[in-house]
């Protein structure tokens, strides 16, 4: 599903690359944690996968498409197949939970009939059936993150990418959010979660990719956050 071949990414004007010669293969339906301290390149890694950044060297294949050499006009199609979740939720404050999710379908031209069917369904899936008319500022952090996950998942993408999705949440809520990702993963969706939440990673025993200074230092099945400490 995701194939990363010898990818190096150096920001313009930066002294050293943020991602150094990384090779990773992620299969369809896998659940993967991307861990490492702040500044190790997790966000850069994710931005490369949605072609917000283009690698300086190497190739990235998503569902068989070489996305580094993809035509600009094809990028939207790529992104429709990848759902993204962020630490700061990125919800529109003047739209309700329902409207925030519907927006994602609306702007890719889905007909109203489909929007009316899929939005309530995905809101139920993330456990927000009673909150669809609430605005973001009427929702807790965990609930807002659920809206954002609903939005990422509503178009049934093959891949969900999450960049520190629990970074602003307390441990109990974080656990709920992680179970939600687990639930989504069980529908066959490939899930990649970047986090530095040690406890979470240790509890879930999923595949772990560990970055340090832009280098992939560990790729471990049923792994933990770190060996030492």
């Amino acid at each position: 599903m995701i194939k990363i071949n010898n990818v190096t990414m150096k920001y313009k004007g930066a002294h050293s690359p943020a991602i150094k010669d990384i090779n990773v293969d992620i299969d369809r339906g896998e659940f993967v944690f991307l861990v490492g301290p702040s500044g190790c390149g997790k966000s850069t890694f994710i931005r490369l996968l949605i072609r917000e950044l283009i690698p300086t060297k190497g190739k990235i294949f998503i569902a068989g498409h070489d996305i580094a050499n993809m035509r600009r006009g094809k990028v939207p199609q790529l992104r429709r197949n990848i759902g993204c979740v962020f630490q700061d939720y990125k919800l529109l404050p003047n739209k309700t939970a329902y409207e925030n999710v519907a927006f994602a379908l609306d702007v890719i031209g889905k007909p109203n009939r489909i929007i009316r069917a899929q939005v309530p369904e995905v809101l139920r899936l993330v456990g927000l059936e009673g909150k669809s008319e609430s605005y973001p500022d009427e929702l807790s952090g965990g609930e807002q993150q659920r809206v954002s996950i609903a939005r990422a998942f509503v178009n049934r993408p093959a891949i969900i990418l999450a960049d520190e999705p629990t970074g602003n949440l307390d441990p109990a809520t974080s656990g709920d959010i992680m179970s939600l990702f687990n639930k989504i993963n069980r529908t066959g969706t490939t899930v990649l979660v970047a986090t530095h939440d040690r406890e979470m990673v240790d509890n879930m025993r999923k595949r772990v990719l560990a970055l340090e200074g832009g280098t992939l230092i560990r790729d471990q099945q049923r792994g933990v956050y770190g060996y030492e400490e």
Partner: peptide, 16 residues
């Protein structure tokens, strides 16, 4: 800009 960022993220076409 917020709407635009989300539109790009969810794959709205450039011309849209």
């Amino acid at each position: 800009r917020r709407e635009i960022a989300i539109m790009r993220l969810v794959g709205a076409s450039n011309w849209f």
